[in-house]
């Protein structure tokens, strides 16, 4: 893709801290265009959050081995060190965390935390101007009576308000790329929708690129332009939302979609499940990681990891049986 603001190539992340090395991400390629939202979909331990955190290099360096290349807005993230890395974080790429109660410092007011971030990246901005900007950000994320909320502490706000504040904090320095790590998982259903709509609206208005990590297919469909399905550290299927949802071609995606409860129509029936459990990341099979659970797996599947198959219109599947799954 010619026009990309974030380009991840062959990313491999291995955690070397424990007795066994855990290969959490195993060759992820992902390019995000300006103003595009990509949802990273997958179950726990599929490597979606690890991929996200790698973009900001948040993994402890002593216990992590990262290979591959990440280029964000023309910056080679892997080559950044020290002050340059700190400068990059939050300014070029910023992140929204899953649990705002934990990701906001309890001993500072929200206003203080936002102005801190602004003044860290733009030392020339006066305290007053930074506060004015924090106020505008609060208006932008539609926090009612923003003037007073700026002086509120995280524990004084509801979950939805906290997540709005977290979004304001992430947007404080006008980043080009926003990483969202399950930003609605900790919220209740009605608030989830509001936050999703807000994120989508802000993303459109500011022409932000966004990677949105979620395990909720519905949420992914709601916000994303493209969906990337991850399994055992690899992107097994990626494509436009419509293609992936209507015509999934990877057996895992097909399984994942069929597990969704079909409303009230099937009440009384048991929910479909994918049999088996995800593989041990410290001890991956040599071939397709999904093969042990896959109904259409053949001997070839167990020998070598399948190469990506381009089905056109950017719909890419890592499966050798795309003919069967069509």
């Amino acid at each position: 893709m010619a026009d990309t603001v974030l380009d991840i190539r062959n990313l491999r992340v291995t955690f070397t801290g424990g007795a066994k090395h855990v290969r959490a991400v195993d060759g992820v390629d992902l390019a995000v265009a300006p103003g595009e939202v990509v949802a990273l979909l997958g179950e726990s331990g599929s490597g979606k959050s690890v991929t996200l955190r790698s973009v900001l290099r948040l993994h402890p360096e002593a216990k992590t081995r990262i290979a591959g290349s990440i280029v964000a807005a023309g910056v080679d993230v892997m080559a950044l060190t020290g002050a340059a890395l700190a400068d990059f974080r939050g300014k070029t790429v910023s992140m929204i965390f899953q649990e705002p109660m934990l990701a906001l410092d309890p001993v500072y007011s929200l206003g203080q935390q936002i102005t801190e971030s602004i003044r860290k990246h733009e030392p020339a901005v006066s305290a007053e101007a930074a506060r004015r900007r924090a106020f505008e950000l609060f208006e932008q994320v539609r926090i009612p009576s923003p003037e007073r909320r700026l002086d509120a502490y995280p524990h004084e706000m509801s979950g939805g308000m906290r997540q709005r504040a977290m979004i304001a904090l992430a947007l404080a320095c006008n980043p080009k790329v926003l990483l969202a790590d399950e930003p609605t998982t900790a919220l209740d259903a009605t608030v989830q929708v509001q936050i999703l709509l807000l994120l989508r609206e802000l993303q459109r208005n500011l022409n932000l690129s966004m990677i949105f990590v979620t395990h909720d297919i519905g949420v992914g469909v709601e916000v994303a332009d493209r969906i990337a399905v991850m399994y055992a550290g690899r992107i097994v299927e990626i494509g436009a939302v419509r293609d992936v949802i209507r015509t999934p071609r990877h057996p895992y995606t097909i399984g994942l979609l069929s597990t969704r409860a079909q409303g009230g129509r099937l009440s009384g029936n048991r929910l479909t499940t994918i049999s088996g459990s995800p593989p041990d990341l410290a001890n991956l099979p040599p071939g397709c990681a999904f093969a042990p659970r896959c109904a259409s797996a053949s001997a070839a599947c167990r020998e070598a990891a399948p190469a990506p198959v381009d089905l056109g219109a950017g719909h890419v599947v890592r499966c050798i049986h795309t003919a069967i799954t069509a």
Binding site: D87, R89, S94, A103, S117, K120
Partner: peptide, 26 residues
């Protein structure tokens, strides 16, 4: 190991700033 330290890191705070504000404050 709390999330807000990682969040501070993600928003570009260096080790000194994190210690001075977020660790010391708590």
């Amino acid at each position: 190991s709390r999330d807000f330290v990682e969040a501070a890191k993600a928003s570009g705070a260096g080790a000194l700033l994190i210690i001075r504000k977020h660790v010391l404050g708590n």
